[in-house]
Nucleic acid binder design. Structure first.
Lengths: 353, 353
DNA sequence: ATGAAAGCGCTAACAG
DNA sequence: CTGTTAGCGCTTTCAT
């Protein structure tokens, strides 16, 4: 049986309040007493009971992170950064995955299991704008992503339209005119796909390039397999294109794979750019140019906003904030613009064998 | 303020015990009463307070998963499967990352923050055999990985030696004799690296191929960058090789990238096989043959063992179990043995442009 | 079938 | 500076 405050107090010959004071670094404790208590603590291997503490204080020291799936690199990397930032605030992270299902997302929002956290960072993929009011929960919540805007909670998101436009402009700047898009979603007014396609169209329009619907490949999910399948369809359709803008990196890597398999040279025949800048893209063959949407900054900001909300005393809560983080294009080989930085060897002797 | 049992009891005109009975599906409640209570619950939007429940019952319904890093695909995919399995048991997963630091790992083991969980699935990378006794904690713990054996806790691990041997034998079966290894660790008696190198050597010995230390590339971490750097060194060293066994996939993908950059054809000049079978390997160019060490099975077994431990009543605890899961080699293009399954198009018209 | 009451281990007034 | 005491919201004997 684990030791309690009582046990320590008893052993040290003081009251539990004093022990509590020592444990919580309350300033006004005589050094002598503190010492005595500390010894008892060490002797018994006392560890405060987090649950009891939490019940009493109303804080658990844990925040929840709700994601579609961890095996999608973007989310895994995001989770890593959320955990790192949470740790700086003394918080631990409970991860719940929804598989991008609207029902699961809604269920998690009202799940009592999550009552064990002080607040949630919520990244939906199934819910849409119409579900905005469901976000008005009675605990601190920070929304991520592009599914819902104008909700009553803090929201951290990226500049999808601008970033997609910049990516497309880069391809145009390379002289490409037949730019395919992989990963569009059918009938979706909002969400990452719609916004990024919007940016793509904006760029075309600004450059006076007509939009050709035949160049748009639709998928449901954004996994590698979907990108591969889309590209296959695109190629089979016989449509001509000289560049590809993939709406996320996983998708794009799958597409690029099929592209090469089909005999296209990247970037010579087809220039390729992705979105997310996951680590893998740096090591693909060829390395994939991508848009870093500001993932690290999103994670940091989300945790900070959540911590602020959690810390809000009963008073008047601050107005919900919408934070847009900055993006950046990371040029690599797939657009022929990258340095060979990653894998260049100072004296790479191709070593014929 | 959230409603409590009292509020509900008051509104329904019953005692809190009755409400509790309803909430917990206690059988002996009159349907009529149950109904009345349910209405009060709905009306108030009552949600049981997980913390209070946890304090009273001694169970939080959360388990901890301690990993080196989520952005390593192997661990992200493992985490995904642990979460899925935990959910089947009604458990939620708290993830803590250690960055593979021994100090952090040891700290987490005794961290009161983790007292908020009912048990831990612990995957160390920094701790070693000498730290085995530190695992004798007073809460349910399931060990993963190959850093520590014979500890006093349940342990789920893979057949490293056999799997590595099988991988090497596959390369030998392809007629390769100069097989390089990427990712070995210096001075390590135990751990994944040592075991897998062992399997590699066993295979060589069994085939009568002399072991050439010049073919072993050492790294510290197993990230893509390390594999890339190692391969660069190997190539620069001028040593001749016709196959590569990478001790994990990330590493191997980095190595394969550099290999191709340096002008080697895979698998013609150099056959490549990895270890872990992460999703990405299916979409690499060429797709990477890999050893699936039984990740899904490890996740499932670990959760099940932990759940069993958590459920153990005060009585005599079961003896610690060591579970070895089965592995499987997944042949793909990098060894010239793979089907084109992933990306083959039934009618792939290479579409000259 | 339901109610009363005693804590789980801790924090936070409030005394002293 | 330290002790006493009252709960946080819930589960759980023990009665009734």
């Amino acid at each position: 049986m684990a030791a309690t405050l009582h046990d320590v107090a008893h052993l040290a010959g003081v009251s539990i309040k004093t022990v509590s004071n020592v444990v919580n670094d309350y300033p006004h404790v005589r050094p002598e007493t503190r010492h005595k208590v500390q010894r008892a603590i060490d002797e018994l291997g006392y560890q405060p009971n987090a649950t009891a503490r939490s019940l009493r204080s109303g804080r658990s020291g844990a925040i929840g992170l709700v994601l579609p799936e961890l095996s999608l690199s973007y989310f895994a990397e995001l989770a890593d950064e959320v955990i790192a930032e949470a740790e700086k605030h003394g918080l631990v992270v409970l991860i719940e995955k929804t598989g991008a299902s609207r029902e699961r997302e809604i269920a998690v929002l009202s799940s009592p299991r999550m009552r064990l956290t002080d607040g949630l960072i919520f990244s939906p993929l199934g819910m849409g704008q119409d579900d905005a009011e469901l976000l008005a929960v009675d605990y601190p919540l920070v929304l991520l992503g592009e599914r819902i805007f104008g909700s009553p909670v803090d929201h951290v998101t990226m500049r999808n339209v601008e970033a997609a436009r910049a990516a497309t402009e880069m391809l145009i700047g390379l002289g490409r005119r037949r730019i395919a898009v992989v990963g569009a979603h059918v009938d979706e007014g909002v969400g990452s796909a719609a916004l990024r396609v919007q940016g793509y169209q904006d760029a075309l329009a600004a450059a006076g390039i007509p939009f050709d619907p035949a160049l748009v490949a639709y998928t449901t999910l954004w996994h590698r397999a979907n990108g591969a399948a889309s590209m296959r369809e695109l190629i089979d359709s016989g449509v001509h294109f000289d560049a590809v803008f993939g709406l996320n990196d996983a998708l794009t890597l799958g597409a690029m794979r099929v592209l090469q398999e089909a005999g296209f040279r990247v970037p010579d025949d087809v220039a390729v750019i992705g979105f997310d800048d996951i680590e893998e893209s740096r090591y693909a063959v060829p390395s994939l140019t991508s848009v870093d949407p500001g993932r690290a900054s999103i994670a940091r900001t989300a945790v900070q906003l959540l911590v602020r909300r959690i810390g809000e005393q009963g008073g008047r809560p601050a107005d919900p904030q919408e934070v847009l983080v900055d993006f950046e294009i990371v040029p690599r080989e797939s657009t022929g613009t990258g340095s060979l930085a990653v894998a260049s060897s100072s004296a790479a002797t191709p070593a014929a064998r």
